[in-house]
């Protein structure tokens, strides 16, 4: 018998059995056999249901995770925006406060001045110089004195040493090349205030018998030709006496904090 004939015979046999089942199903005689097959197949049915339900849950959780990730990313971006806005708002409030102080200062002072903002401050040269955003076009000239405001009090900052059309460089009082004639109003004592390249300054050439004490305010004397008289420079914090030296020296802290310079005032008249 050929391969195909055998296959045909088997097919006919299997079809006959199927047909027999179909006939028996008409008379409900097949139920027992069907139950038997169902008994064999039911584990696979329940297993498949469980597997696919778990798969469905897994895919739902996966989608939820994706959604949460996206939401998290968006919230982080929003948070960044809010942080930026918060910083901006604090800066604006600070600037507003500073401008208000300048306005109040303008009303009570006898000087004419130009307000400017600090543009550049070199980290290597922190206590030596700063660059501001106003220059010759705004009326700034070399050697003009510069002050700054801190709270209700003003303090000397330094003087202009370089001017370009739109920017100027200020030599700070704390620079070691900086020197200004200081005056103690309480005891009417003059001396030279020199910078040291740090946040402290030195009040020099004071005779030992002079009446000075810690906490004394030192202002500009107005005798140097550059700085007008009466601008606060700093306060004495301690004294240094050197053996065999004819003078004593005092250490000053500036009247204003040189670490947080934003707005400065260049005195023109």
């Amino acid at each position: 018998m050929s391969h195909l004939a055998r296959a045909r015979l088997i097919c006919l046999f299997l079809l006959s059995i199927s047909f027999l089942f179909l006939n028996l199903s008409l008379h409900n005689r097949i139920q027992g056999l069907k139950n038997f097959f169902l008994y064999l197949a039911s584990p696979s049915s329940s297993l498949a249901t469980r597997m696919f339900l778990q798969g469905e849950n897994l895919s739902k959780n996966f989608l939820l995770q994706l959604h949460l990730n996206e939401e998290n990313r968006q919230l982080k971006e929003k948070l960044k925006e809010y942080v930026h806005l918060d910083t901006l708002s604090k800066e604006i409030i600070e600037e507003n406060e500073q401008l208000r102080k300048i306005l109040q200062f303008r009303e009570r002072t006898k000087y004419d001045f130009i307000s400017a903002q600090v543009l550049v401050r070199d980290t290597q040269d922190w206590y030596n110089s700063v660059i501001i955003d106003k220059g010759a076009l705004a009326g700034i000239k070399k050697d003009l004195p510069v002050i700054t405001l801190e709270g209700d009090k003003e303090g000397l900052l330094g003087r202009i040493i370089e001017v370009s059309p739109n920017a100027s460089k200020i030599l700070l009082l704390t620079d070691s090349l900086s020197a200004v004639v200081g005056y103690v109003p309480r005891s009417k004592v003059d001396g030279i205030v020199e910078g040291q390249g740090s946040k402290e300054m030195r009040f020099k050439y004071i005779l030992p018998e002079m009446d000075l004490k810690s906490g004394d305010l030192i202002v500009t004397s107005g005798t140097g030709g550059i700085f007008p008289a009466g601008i606060p420079i700093g306060e004495i914090v301690k004294f240094e006496e050197k053996k065999y030296a004819p003078y004593k020296e005092a250490i000053l802290t500036p009247q204003v904090d040189f670490s947080h310079l934003r707005e400065v005032l260049v005195i023109t008249e």
């Binding site: 079809l15 089942f21 179909l22 197949a41």
Partner: peptide, 12 residues
């Protein structure tokens, strides 16, 4: 066994 069709129809 798992369907409601007449038993043997799918086999056929």
């Amino acid at each position: 066994t798992l369907s409601l069709n007449p038993f043997g129809s799918q086999a056929f």
